[in-house]
Amino acid sequence: PPPASPLSATCPSLPPYFMKGSIIQLADGKLKRVEDLKTEDFIQSAEISSELKIDSSTVERIEGSQTPNSAIIQFAVGEHKAQVSVEVLVEYPFFVFGQGWSSCSPDRTTQLLELSCAKLSVGDVCISLTLKNSK
């Protein structure tokens, strides 16, 4: 029989920082709640950062995954439109430029994290990060 852990009945949880009320420290040291973050907070923090820069990742495709409660999202990243696929839980929130948090299943995000979310759709432009070239 497959090994059963006491927690196996619950769905895999998201990182704690997406829970409504989580305290987020911006690059300038200011503290904000995760639900209060704005696009400018990410942009300004990346400007201060010596290692990270903001990239835009456009959602090109969203499809179901064999993993329960998961989806595979294909992004075109940056000006070179590099194709990147990520498998995430449907409630995983992404930050859409000018809009805010969005997920494949806003209802689940709200239910599990209390974070209000829009529906992530093809064409949405999400904030992503790349490492600044260090070489």
């Binding site: 920082y17 989580s22 305290i23 420290q25 940056g78 930050f95 992503s128």
Partner: peptide, 25 residues
């Protein structure tokens, strides 16, 4: 009510997925 003394503070960049390691051309 007793407030917790230490509230976890998370860095802003933990909220954003690292999708592209670098732009190479």
């Amino acid at each position: 009510n007793v407030e917790p003394r230490s509230v976890p503070v998370f860095p802003w960049h933990s909220l954003v997925p690292f999708l592209a390691p670098s732009q190479s051309d």
